[in-house]
Amino acid sequence: MKSYTINEINDILKGELIGNTTQKIEGPEQLQNAKSHHITFIGALKYVKLWPDSKACAAIVNDNLTIEPGDNRALIKVKNADLAMAKILELFNPPAPELATDIHPTAVIHNTAKIGNNCKIGANCYVGKDVDLADGVILYPNVCVFDETTIGSNTVIWSGTVVRERCIIGSNCIFHTNVSIGADGFGYRPSDDGRGLVKIPQIGNVIIGHYVEIGANSCVDRAKFSATIVGDGCKIDNLVQIAHNSIMGRSCIMAGHSGLAGSVTLGDGVIIGGSASIKDHTTIHSGATVGAGSGVVGDVKAGATVLGYPAQDARDMLKQWVVMRKLAKK
C-alpha cells in the first residue's frame, strides 16, 4: 500500500504547509468519510465547518479560506484545491487492469489490419479489414473496430465499444465502456406517398482528435457526408449524444445527458451543462457556456452564458425567475 508523509505530498503540490502531522497518508477521501490516515480537500467556504469533525489528518485547502489545522493535523494551502487534489488522486491511482497476452487467441483480426508495437487486444475483440492501430493502442475485451478505421497511438478503448468503418481516431484518447462511434446519423424524410419514412444514407465518417475522452454509453454519429468532428482535448460525459455533421472545437466539455442535434457547431472551450439540448444547425461560439437543462434554439455569442428553455442570457433568465417567484407569492 502506498503511503506518504505530509512533507512528501507538499513537495508535489508546492503549497503552503500549515501545521504538521506524523500520520502517514494512505489515500484521499471526502471530509465526512475520512479516517486518520486520509487526506481530504476543502475548496469552498461551506465545507470549512466540516473540518473540526473530520477525522482526516490533513487537508488541501484553497488559500482564500481561513481555517486552523488543529492538533497533529496539517493543511496545505494552494490556489486551487480541486486541481491540487487531482495530483493527489493521480498519485494514489491504482494501475489499470492488465491483459495477460498482447493479442488474445479469441480476438479476430483481419489479415490486412496493421497492428503497431506494444498494442494489446483483449478477448473477443474484432479488428476489421485495413484497420490501422498505431503503437500502444489498448482494446479491452469485446471491442469492435470496423474496416478502414485508424486509431492513433496510446488510445485506450474499453469493453463494449464499437468503432464503425472509416472513422479516424487520434492519439491518447480514452473511450469508456459501450461508446458508439460512427453509427448512422438520424436521417429520415417522409416518403412521396406520405405512407412512410425514407432513410437518408449516411456516407460520411467521424473524425476524433487527440486527447479526447468519451464517457460510457455516449454516441458520436457519422456524418451524412463529410465528417462529424470532435476536436482535440474535448471531454464528453456519459450518455451524451453528438449527432451527424456536428463539429466540436478544441477542449469543449459536454456533461451527462446533453446532446447536439445535427450540424451543430461548437467553438473552442464551449461548456454544455447536463441535460442541455442544442437545436440543429446552431452555432455556439468559443468560450460560451450553456447551463444545465437548457434548450438552445439559436446561435450563442462567444463568451456568453445562456440558461433556460428556450435559452437566453443567464442574467436575464434569472431576473425573470425572480419576478415569476414574486408573482406566485401574491
Rank of each mutant, 00 (worst) to 15 (best):
K77E: 05
P69Q: 02
F175C: 03
N142K: 07
D280N: 14
N64I: 05
N62A: 10
I242E: 03
T155P: 07
V131G: 00
G287W: 13
V306M: 05
G182A: 10
L75N: 01
T112W: 05
N80D: 15
S54Q: 05
A314R: 10
V290E: 08
E213M: 02
N238W: 11
P141H: 11
V264G: 05
G182E: 11
G269H: 08
Y47S: 04
L139H: 06
D280G: 15
N142Q: 13
A261F: 11
A81D: 10
T265Y: 02
I6K: 01
G182S: 06
I121D: 04
N62Q: 02
D130E: 14
N124R: 02
V264Y: 13
C252T: 09
G249P: 11
N124Q: 07
H285Y: 12
I174N: 09
N205T: 14
G116S: 01
A314L: 00
S258C: 13
S54Y: 06
S246I: 08
G136A: 03
P190L: 01
E26L: 12
K301M: 09
V131T: 00
S277H: 00
S153M: 08
L17M: 04
F146N: 12
T265K: 14
H110E: 14
G170N: 08
A113L: 09
N93F: 06
G128V: 09
S294H: 06
G128A: 08
K301L: 09
I208N: 01
G298L: 00
A261P: 11
G182I: 06
R325Y: 07
A74F: 13
G295H: 08
T112C: 02
I115S: 05
G204S: 04
V48Y: 02
S277I: 07
I242L: 12
S171P: 03
S263P: 04
N80S: 13
V230R: 04
L239Q: 15
D102G: 04
L89T: 12
R166G: 00
A216F: 03
G231A: 07
R315Q: 09
T106H: 00
I200L: 15
I253N: 05
L13P: 05
R166D: 05
K79M: 04
N20S: 15
V145C: 04
Y47Q: 06
K199R: 15
C125P: 11
Y126F: 15
N7V: 09
N20G: 05
I236N: 04
S180G: 14
D237Q: 09
I151Y: 10
L266N: 03
D63I: 01
V137C: 02
G196F: 11
S258W: 08
K24Y: 07
Q202M: 11
L197K: 00
K326Q: 15
G136M: 02
S251N: 15
T21F: 02
T112V: 07
K35R: 05
E148F: 08
F92V: 08
H110T: 01
K330D: 13
V137W: 06
H210W: 00
G70Q: 06
F41W: 14
K49H: 06
G256I: 07
E29T: 01
G231N: 07
A255Y: 11
R325T: 14
G122T: 03
E26G: 09
P201W: 06
G287E: 09
I203Y: 03
A223T: 04
A288F: 07
T101D: 14
R189E: 14
L327Y: 10
E213N: 02
